[in-house]
Nucleic acid binder design. Structure first.
Lengths: 201, 201, 201, 201
DNA sequence: GATGAATGAGTGTTCATTCAT
DNA sequence: GATGAATGAACACTCATTCAT
C-alpha cells in the first residue's frame, strides 16, 4: 500500500469512529507513521483527504451498481427464488454493507450528513434510494414468473426494503461492526425472508 | 429561560448539527451572548454540558414511557384500533421524534454513538428497543380482542416497527428537520398503516 | 504600559526593522513576555495589530496637523523668519520625523507600501503631500511680509521641501536611527537653510 | 532565458514586491514552473538567490559608472548645457532608475536596508553617493566653462541632486512603476531643470 | 537537469480551562 | 452571576532543505 493509500485508509478508520473534525492531522500521521509535513505532500489539505475518500466511494458504488444493472433483464430464464435471494444477499452484504470500506464510509456519512450536504445526498442515495431500486428490479424479475400484481410487488418490496434498512441501522451501523452483529444481521434477514415467503405465499 | 438553560439549548443545537468535538465553548458562548469564563460558573467543563443534556434526555424519555406504561393493562376494555393508532401516532411523533429537544438529541446521539458507549446504549434503546416494546404492548392489547395468534402479532409488530424505524431515519433523522420532511413522514406512515390494515385483515 | 500597548510597541519595533511578514507572533510574544494565546485575547489576529498601529498613526498625524492649521492665519503680525524656522523644525522633527513612534511607522510604511495600498497612501501623504502643504502655508505667511511673488514662493518651497525630503530619506529613514544620523540631519538642514536664506535674499 | 535566469527574474519580481522573507521558495518555483527540488540544483539555498541578485546588480552598476567615468575629463571641449542635460537624463533614467532590473533592485533594497547592512550600503551608494558624485562631475565640467565659483557649483549640485532624489522616491520608488508615474517624473524633472537654469542664470 | 518523497522547525490561530476581581 | 486576562496544549498548515533516483 502506498503512503497515499495508507493515509486514506487510516483517515477513514478514524473519521468513521470519531468524526471528521475530531480527528487531527497529527492523529492520522501518528498512526500512518509519517510526519505531518509529509501528509501535505500527498494531500493539499485535510479537506482533500475527505474529498478523495468521497470520490473513491462514488467509484466503488458505481462499479457495484454496474454489476447489478443486468439483473432481471432476462425474465424468460427460470430464475428461482433461491438464486435471487442469494444474489440479493451477495450484493447487499459482502460488497456493500459488510465491505469494510463501504461500511466505514456509511458510518462516516451518517455522522457528517447533518452539516455536509454532499455527504447527505450520498448517504441518502446509498441507504434509501439505490437499495430500494435494486430490490424493486430483482423482485419484479422474480415476481413476473409468478404472476403477482404490480401493486402487490411494490408493497412487498417496500416492506422488505424497510425491514432490511432497519436491520442495517440496528446491526451494521450501530457501534462497532463486530462478528456478533454481522451474524445477528444475517440471522434476522434469513428469519424474516423465510417467514415473509411463507406468509405471502 | 435562565442562562444555564440557554447554554444547554444553544449547545444542543450546535452539537446536533456539527458534533460534540466540532463545537467549541467559544461558539456556544458567542451564540448565548456570554463570556467563556461565565460558562464555567454554570458548568464544570464541556463534558458537564454533555452530561446535563443526556441526563435531561433520560428524564424526558422516562416521563414519556411512564405515560405509556398503563396502556393495554386493561385488555377487557374495548379499545378500538383507531384509538390505538392515534395513540401510537401521538407518542411516536409529537412528544418523541417530532419534539425539538428529542429530535435534536437523537441526531446528536446518532453521531456520537460510534465513540461514546453511553450515548450508543441510549440511542439503541430510544430508536430500537423502546419503540418495539411499546408497539408490541399496544398491538397485543388490540389483537387480543381479535383473537390473532401471538406468533402473528409478533411478526406484524416487527414489520410495522421496521417500517416506522426506516421512515424515521429517512425523514426525521436526515439533514435538517423541515416541515416538508415531517409531512412526508406523516404521509408515508398513514399510507403504510392503511394498506397494512387492509392486507392483514 | 498595558499589555495591549506593550504588544503594539514591540510589534512596531520589529515590523519596522524586519517587515510585517518576517516578524512572527512568537517573536512579538517572546519580547513582550506573554504566551501567544494571550496575544489573541488582545488582538483578533496579526492583521489586527497592523490595523491598530495604522489607526494610532493616523490619530497621531491628525493631532499634529491640527496644531499646524492655525499657523500663518494672522499675516499682519510681524512674524520673523527665525520664529517660523523654529516652528518648522519643531513640527517637522521633534514630534514628526524624530518622534520614535512616527519614525518607526514611516520605516514600516516604506517597506510595506509596495504591496499594501493603504500604507502606500499614508506613506505618500506623510512624506510628500502633507509636508509640502505645511511648508507652503508657513512660507507664504512669511513671504507676504517681504513682498515675494507667488511664483517665486512656490519654487522656493518646492526646492526647500525637496531638500528636506531628501535629507529625511538619507538620514532619518536609512538604517538605524542613531544620534549621529539625527545630528547629521540637523547639521545639513541648518547649513542648507542659512545658505538658502543668504542666496535668495 | 535559462532556468537559472528565470528563477532570478521571478525571485526579484517577488522580492521587490513582498520582501525577501515573505516570498517562499514554493512561490518562486510555482511561478517559474519547476519543482522546489529543482531550484536547489541551480542555487545552494534561498540566500544564494539573494546573493546572485546583489552580485548581478553590482556588475550592472559598475558597467553604468564605467560609461560615466570619462565625462568631463576633457573640459576644453565646448560642451553645451543641452548635451549634458541629455546625458544626465540618459544615465539617470533609461539605464538606471527606469531600467526594470535596476528599479526592482532599488525597491528591494529599500525594504531590506533596515536589517541587511550589505544592502543598506548598496542602497545608500546607488541613491545618494553615486548620483551626487556624477552630477558634481558633470556640472563642474560645464560650470568651469562659465566661470562659476566652486562654492556656488556645490550648492547648485546639492539642490539639483536633492530635487531629483526626492522625485525618485516620489515617483519611481512609490507603489507600482506605472507609465503614469514615469511621465510625472519626467515632467517634474524637466520643469525643474528649465526653471533652475533660468533662475540661476 | 529535474523530480518524488520526505522531514524538522516554524507559521498563525484556536482549544478548554483557570482565577482573581 | 459575570468578566478580563491569562495560559499550555493542540490545531491545520507552510517553511527551507535534503537526497535518492
Amino acid at each position: 500500500m502506498s503512503t497515499k493509500e495508507k493515509i486514506m485508509d487510516v483517515a477513514l478508520h478514524m473519521f468513521s469512529e470519531r468524526g471528521y473534525e475530531a480527528v487531527s492531522i497529527r492523529d492520522i500521521c501518528g498512526e500512518v507513521g509519517i510526519k505531518e509535513s509529509t501528509l501535505y505532500y500527498h494531500f493539499k489539505n485535510k479537506k482533500d483527504i475527505l474529498d478523495s475518500l468521497i470520490s473513491k466511494f462514488k467509484t466503488h458504488i458505481d462499479e457495484l451498481l454496474g454489476h447489478i444493472e443486468d439483473i432481471g433483464t432476462e425474465p424468460d430464464k427460470k430464475q428461482t427464488e433461491a438464486a435471487e435471494k442469494n444474489a440479493i444477499e451477495f450484493y447487499m452484504m459482502d460488497s456493500y454493507l459488510f465491505d469494510p470500506f463501504c461500511n466505514l464510509m456509511l458510518r462516516f456519512m451518517m455522522m457528517e450528513q447533518f452539516h455536509n450536504e454532499e455527504m447527505r445526498l450520498l448517504y441518502e442515495k446509498t441507504l434509501f434510494t439505490d437499495p430500494y431500486e435494486i430490490q424493486m428490479k430483482v423482485f419484479t424479475a422474480i415476481a413476473m414468473n409468478f404472476g403477482i400484481s404490480e401493486t402487490d410487488i411494490e408493497f412487498i418490496v417496500r416492506e422488505t426494503h424497510a425491514y432490511m434498512t432497519m436491520l442495517t441501522f440496528k446491526y451494521l451501523l450501530n457501534g462497532e461492526l463486530t462478528e456478533e452483529r454481522k451474524k445477528a444481521y444475517d440471522r434476522d434477514v434469513h428469519e424474516y425472508m423465510s417467514r415473509k415467503m411463507w406468509i405471502t405465499e
